[in-house]
Design a protein around this nucleic acid. Structure first.
Length: 412
RNA sequence: CGGGGUGUAGUAUACCGGCAGUACGCAUGCAUGGGGUGCAUGUAGACCGGGUUCAAUUCCCGGCACCCCGACCA
């Protein structure tokens, strides 16, 4: 893609109303635009990142047997009366022209349970795992930290249905592995820890996946032995010990952001909607449920927060909007840059080519650092003379002169 | 929802009870081309409503928006 064709531009100054690094860089780099507090547009560069994150999640959830669907964002209030959740404060309320009260979906238990009830009749229909990647609406009193806490945000929500607790427990463990894989692939695996937390309106306890970053809004305490943490809110319940290995927790609090969670719902919603199945003996039994969320847009913010320096974002290759950023520094370098782009295109390597002729070399370098594409290739009169290209990783300081062929070998 | 703060050009900001300034951007031209390049010319602005005053962008009140701290947090 030609950079001159991307309709967004980078900003030199940080927006005055944003203090978190993720929001500053994402806005300055032209990844997102703020419409109002907690509500953002995803622009060409940002959407590419978002889609790549979505696809990592999709691939891993599919591999775990999840079936993707897409549910409505507007829900009839009656379903919330049924579950007793009509008074949740973050629900946006509206109505149809005929006066039917409607809420905007902040989660989808009230939709998925009546939906699967139409199809689950027997133990033969279980287990079942269904998910979607969809916009959630929450009327937050105080949106904050850029895209970390929004009124509208993208979420992957997975719901599982089981004949008994044992089967649920198996899947519950499976999804923990799946989540670990997702966060590893998204590049924040080492900054993300399984965290024991309270269950909110769902259950007594829940499991969160917390990414350690100063911009986070949670406080967790790491286990000194295993890779587990405890959320501040249940630290006392755990008596300051790790729920898994029983060793003492670190005294040092860490700020973190919740990028994923897992709730054992048991029969909380199956009871409300009378979701049950016939067991092999013909007895009617309630379906055991779990639900599993990942904040997709929040994950993007967390990656930007974790992988950045004083110049901008350093996208992991797995989610980067492009893999290679080519910077021709003179008019004469542009045809050569296009030749390099072609050879990369033959290997299906996505390239952003900074063909802007009115930008100085310095500005191209600064923009490249801000946008954070993992590989930077500079082509100038200098490199043409040396019959090579200059390659630098965004995460490293040193640049190397090499041939196009040598560079391509990096991606084999 | 409690507390605090801020609203000035596209962006970031300055000053001020009496013609609103700077930088970047944008436009035009020339010069440039390895870390936000130089010069020139141009472009564009006081959140909304009320009050005080001869005069309000400035002071006061109300609203709205946004930010921060806390509370809350599928």
């Amino acid at each position: 893609m030609l950079q001159s064709k991307i309709f967004t531009k980078t900003l030199r100054d940080s927006p005055k109303d944003e203090t978190s690094k993720n929001a500053q860089y994402l806005i300055r780099g032209g990844f997102v635009d703020k419409l109002m507090a907690g509500v953002y547009s995803y622009l060409p560069l940002g959407l590419r990142v978002l889609k790549r994150i979505e696809n990592i999640i999709r691939e891993e959830i599919n591999a775990a047997g999840g079936q993707e669907i897409f549910m409505p964002a507007i829900h009839p209030i009656e379903n919330y009366t049924t579950t007793g959740r009509e008074a949740i404060d973050v629900l946006f309320h509206t109505e149809t022209q005929t006066g039917h009260r409607i809420v905007l979906g902040q989660s989808h238990e009230e939709v998925i349970v009546p939906l699967v009830k139409k199809f689950i009749e027997s133990y033969r229909d279980l287990p079942l795992a269904v998910y979607q990647i969809q916009t959630k609406f929450r009327n937050e009193l105080r949106p904050k930290s850029g895209i970390f806490r929004g009124r509208e945000f993208l979420m992957k929500d997975l719901y599982s249905f089981h004949a008994d607790e044992d089967d649920f427990d198996r899947y519950y463990k499976t999804i923990q592995q799946v989540y670990k894989k997702i966060f590893d692939r998204a590049g924040i695996g080492s900054a993300t820890v399984r965290t024991f937390a309270s269950g909110g309106t769902f259950s007594k306890y829940s499991l969160e996946f917390q990414t350690i970053t100063d911009a986070g809004e949670d406080t967790i305490f790491l286990c000194e032995r295993c890779s587990v943490a405890v959320n501040d809110e249940v630290k006392d319940d755990c008596k300051n010990t790790c729920p898994e290995c029983k060793k003492p927790l670190s005294h040092e609090p860490k700020k973190s952001i919740e990028v994923g969670n897992i709730f054992p719902l048991k029969t909380r919603f199956s009871d409300a909607f009378n979701l049950s199945y016939k067991d092999p003996d013909g007895k009617q039994k309630p379906v055991i449920m779990g639900c599993y969320g990942i904040g997709v847009t929040r994950l993007m913010g967390a990656i930007a927060e974790v992988h950045s320096d004083e110049h901008g974002i350093i996208w992991p290759e797995s989610v980067a909007p492009f893999l290679v950023h080519i910077l021709p520094l003179s008019k004469a370098a542009i045809p050569e840059a296009k030749r390099v782009e072609l050879s990369l295109a033959e290997k299906s390597i996505p390239v952003l080519l900074d063909d802007r002729e009115d930008k100085s070399a310095g500005e191209k370098f600064s923009d490249a650092d801000l946008i954070g594409i993992p590989w930077r290739v500079v082509i100038s009169d200098n490199t043409i003379k040396k019959e090579g290209i200059e390659v630098k990783k965004r995460s490293e300081r040193e640049a190397k002169i090499m041939s196009v062929e040598e560079f391509l070998d990096q991606f084999l």
